[in-house]
Amino acid sequence: MTPGHPVLDVQALTKVYGHGDTAVHALRGVSLRVERGDYVAIMGASGSGKSTLMNIIGCLDVPTGGRYLLDGTDVGALDERRLSILRNRRIGFIFQSFNLIPRMSALANVELPLAYGGIRPAERRRRAQAALRQVGLADRMDHEPNELSGGQQQRVAVARALVTAPALLLADEPTGNLDTRSTADVLAILDQLSLSGRTIVLITHEDEVAARAKRVIRLVDGEIIEDRRQSRVDGPPPAASLAGGVR
């Protein structure tokens, strides 16, 4: 991590799909800064531009115009190889559909980003085990995804996102496929991670999920129409389970 820099610094981003009369302006000059330790929910209806913004923040797409710095690094100045390294080391992704590898244990799934990063097997295992303990799955490490509930699968995905100690956790509708109980469990983990100082950007269309964040950004037609701090109605649970963390 780069002390002194915001984790995200997005400056006048535009994104245009197509040309001429058929051009679609998905983002229209979006600017925002996310400081270290912030917990931000980005909201918007279908077609608002929130998915486009998420893809650019996650270094999965490039803007048509504007500038994006991730943890002090100008993303637009990187070639594909360096961009891939940045994405693997600085961003932890949590997807709605979990994106776990079938026929691989929870532990092996969590180790994957470290394997891509060239971490030695013993260290990979140690860090993956610590991440799974952190999300309450110490007794499920050897289970494959089809042996886990939806909520447990999403917790494996959270552990995988954490294991590289990224600058940013980027969660795309992380509770969209979960029942009420599992949703509460996953949101409680995000609360705890926020309390421990993690920087989280959460994409959601659900007011109840956004209410857990410290800050809500609302997009309409590719523009930010609201950016507000909010007070939590219910205080987040204690962070005792994060003692030691993942390093």
Rank of each mutant, 00 (worst) to 15 (best):
R198A: 15
R198K: 15
R198L: 13
T199S: 15
T199F: 14
T199R: 13
T199I: 13
T199L: 14
I200P: 12
I200T: 02
I200K: 12
V201W: 15
L202I: 09
L202C: 12
I203Y: 02
I203N: 10
H205Q: 01
H205R: 04
H205I: 02
E206Y: 03
D207G: 10
D207Y: 01
D207K: 02
D207E: 08
D207Q: 05
D207N: 08
E208S: 10
E208K: 11
E208C: 06
E208V: 02
V209S: 06
V209A: 08
V209N: 01
A210K: 04
A210T: 08
A210L: 08
A210Y: 11
A210S: 11
A211G: 10
A211I: 10
A211H: 05
A211D: 06
A211N: 02
R212L: 02
R212E: 07
R212N: 01
R212I: 07
R212W: 00
A213T: 00
A213I: 10
A213R: 08
K214A: 13
K214Q: 15
K214F: 07
K214D: 15
K214Y: 12
R215H: 04
R215S: 00
V216P: 09
V216A: 08
V216H: 11
V216N: 04
V216Y: 02
I217N: 00
I217D: 03
I217K: 00
R218D: 07
R218T: 12
R218G: 04
L219K: 10
L219S: 07
L219C: 03
L219Q: 09
V220I: 12
V220L: 13
V220K: 13
V220W: 10
D221I: 11
D221H: 12
G222E: 05
E223C: 05
E223G: 08
I224M: 13
I224H: 11
I224S: 07
I224N: 03
I225H: 15
I225W: 14
E226G: 01
E226Y: 05
D227I: 01
D227Q: 01
D227A: 01
D227C: 02
D227N: 11
D227K: 11
